[in-house]
Design a protein around this nucleic acid. Structure first.
Length: 624
RNA sequence: GCCGAUGUGGCUCAGUGGUAGAGCACUCGAUUCGUAAUCGAGCGGUCGCGGGUUCAAAUCCCGCCAUCGGCUCCA
């Protein structure tokens, strides 16, 4: 039955530190996990277990759910397998022999994987432990492994195998027993298909050294510290309330102030960047959505329509049809094009309850949407202009590193091939002119056209999808849009959809996480707080605050009557960028004792000096 | 929507069948204070919602809602 047992070829070996080795280590960890699980819970069926960016996972089928407590036991079992330093052996097997063997083991998922391997591809499996040394685990006496802690030692006769293309490490001992950790258990569909049975996925993380594991765990802690949901509450920026419903955002005064700053910046950038602004309704006749194709292609994400005087009305999930109607309202000459129309358009989408996530995934949000109506020969220039505007805006918010994706035609889509090719070429041409490298995501486009997606890298290296640029030949067709060409004929304009922030809610969440709530002065909801040392300085503090407010600064006076130490502590916890202490000395000398979050005590400054200090920081947008 | 976990004053959390607790916040009083928490008192909860079991439910059971970790989907 066993044929061609072999170690990996010697040329196959790789040194520590090689990314390929880390991939193998994680893949091997997944196998060790699966072996440990089947030793502890023999009724469990195995499926697949690949490496991930930070570790590995393995999907199991078991009637009883794994508990967090189980994970501790499984990890301990994994360490035993690692410490036993079992060899990992690759074997090429005959398809029919293996099928017969799997049949005996009652592992239907394994069988399905085997049958999914194309006919002429070699079939390999990987053993942990030597198959010559004893019976495979699956048909061993389960009692032998029921309670490994009571056994006191790893049964040397045990071995385990999985159908796998590899590659793997040579022995389990190459995994450092203190450089991996099991993280969580979650539901996951077999083959990622929600129509198929749901399995239990155990996630783990694995590294070459314990130090690397610690660094990863620290990074996770850091992400937790920056979580916009936590900071949003602590800094009183926004809330999402159960009594109102999930995924609906309440912007509190401080968050709203920041949003206003973001919106003001955005409007100004667009007006100076050649755009005009629109306001359009949040609801409209359902027929509009039938014409646009959204009712057909996007219905799953739309709220149910409502009956208004026997007409069906629809809460909008997108803004585009409204801009199209605006265009359609009168005839346009080719001389007018391109028309660039932008709107901070609030949309409502039905999202399944399980996917809601803070501000990142909500049911009502505002897109910084725009549509460019242009001539075919203008498309490439227009897209390039959008890329330039995107770079300008994102970098002003502190994001200077991007990952760019070009998404092409998906299976479920509308339009002729020639049209798709034209649109895709226009996007590629613009990216090349911009000089941006990009990755192609085949089939990742919208149903109506190809797109460029831009992901931004935040302060701790995470990527967030924000900007999107989409060419659309479909809507102009469906709404029968046209312009009058030079020869008097009516021609079809091309439409470019684009959003730079994506959604204001999500972008705001990303800002909170990027700055960890320590906003640069130009964005901080409260820029300066004056702290009177005692009641005698309150009038002076209020007068200074009034003056600075008139100059456009966002200033408050601490009115609590707390002692100075407490006032400073409160301001620090609220992450207020600048505080100014006002005591007897300052009133006498007409100064302020300034303390910034960034630099600490700055000593006594007069009002003008403080203004200059703040204006410089505001102009700098936090880059300094 | 699915799998699992969680839900106790504004916030963070104790409380496993027998009269709902702490710290912070808030209010009041005293203190008028110099760079991360002054002292004292007080207010505040039908324990997510609705059913059920029980002499008795925050606690046990069922349903629903929301949140968290994932899956699927996505700005």
């Amino acid at each position: 039955m066993i044929s061609q047992l072999s170690r990996p070829a010697s040329g196959d070996r790789i040194a520590p530190g090689d990314p390929q080795r880390l991939l193998r280590l994680r893949h091997t960890c997944a196998h060790v996990l699966a072996m440990a699980v089947q030793r502890l819970f023999p009724e469990t069926q195995v499926t697949i277990g690949p490496p991930t960016d930070t570790g590995f996972y393995y999907d199991f089928d078991r009637a009883i759910a794994f508990t967090p407590n189980d994970l501790t036991g499984i990890a301990a079992e994994m360490r035993q397998i690692i410490r036993a330093n079992l060899p990992i052996v690759r074997e090429t097997v005959d398809r029919n022999e293996l099928r017969a063997e799997i049949d005996l083991l009652h592992e239907p998922y394994k069988l399905e994987i085997l049958d999914g391997i194309p006919p002429h591809e070699p079939i390999t499996r990987y053993y942990i432990g030597s198959p010559d040394a004893g019976l495979p685990l699956e048909i061993a006496e389960p009692s032998l492994f029921d309670d490994p802690a009571a056994q006191g030692q790893t049964p040397t006769a045990a071995f385990w195998w999985d159908l796998c293309a590899g590659p793997h490490l040579d022995t389990t001992g190459e995994i450092h027993p203190d450089a991996f950790a099991l993280e969580s258990v979650a539901g996951a569909y077999w083959r990622g298909d929600e129509a198929k049975p749901q399995l239990q996925r155990i996630y783990g993380t694995a590294w070459e050294t314990p130090e690397q594991l610690q660094a990863y765990l620290q990074q996770k802690e850091e992400a937790k510290r920056r979580d916009h949901r936590k900071l949003g509450q602590e800094l009183d920026l926004f809330s999402i309330q159960e009594s109102a419903g999930g995924g609906l955002v309440f912007w509190h005064p401080k968050g709203a102030r920041m949003r206003l700053l973001i919106e003001d910046y955005w409007r100004n950038a667009h007006l100076t960047g050649g755009y005009d602004l629109l306001y359009t309704p949040h609801i409209a006749n359902l027929d509009l959505w039938k014409t646009s194709g959204h009712f057909e292609f996007y219905r799953d994400n739309m709220f149910d329509s409502m009956d208004i005087e026997s007409q069906q009305y629809q809460l909008r999930p997108m803004n585009c049809p409204f801009h199209v109607l605006t265009y359609q309202n009168r005839l346009h000459s080719y001389r007018e094009l391109p028309l660039r129309w932008a709107e901070l358009g609030t949309v409502y989408r039905y999202e399944r309850s399980g996917v809601l996530h803070g501000l990142m995934r909500v049911r009502g949000f505002t897109q910084d949407d725009a549509h460019v109506f242009c001539l075919p020969e203008q498309v490439s220039d227009e897209i390039l202009a959008v890329l330039n505007l995107t770079e300008q805006i994102l970098s002003d918010f502190g994001f200077t590193e991007y990952e760019v994706n070009l998404s092409t035609r998906p299976a479920k889509s509308v339009g002729a091939d020639a049209i798709w090719d034209l649109a895709t070429d226009a996007l590629i041409q613009a990216l090349d002119r911009k000089g941006w490298a990009y990755v192609t995501d085949e089939g990742g486009g919208a149903f109506y056209g190809p797109k460029i997606d831009i992901k931004i890298r935040d302060a701790i290296g995470r990527l967030w999808q924000c900007s999107t640029i989409q060419v659309d030949f479909n809507l102009p067709e469906r709404f029968d849009l046209h312009y009058v060409a030079a020869d008097g004929s009516r021609q079809r304009p091309i439409m470019v959809h684009r959003a730079i922030f994506g959604s204001l809610e999500r972008f705001f969440g990303i800002l909170v996480e990027n700055y960890a709530g320590d906003f640069p002065l130009w964005l901080a909801p409260v820029q300066l707080r004056l702290l009177p040392v005692s009641d005698g300085q309150r009038d002076y503090a209020n007068a200074v605050a009034q003056t600075l407010k008139r100059e456009g600064f966002r200033v408050g006076v601490n009115a609590s009557g707390d002692r100075l130490g407490k006032q400073i502590r409160t301001a620090e916890l609220e992450k207020i960028p600048v505080v100014a202490v006002v005591g007897k000395r300052e009133v006498e000398q007409q100064t302020l004792s300034v303390r910034t979050r960034q630099d600490g005590d700055r000593g006594a400054l007069n009002l003008t000096e403080l203004q200059v200090l703040m204006e410089e920081s505001i102009a700098d947008r936090g880059r300094g």
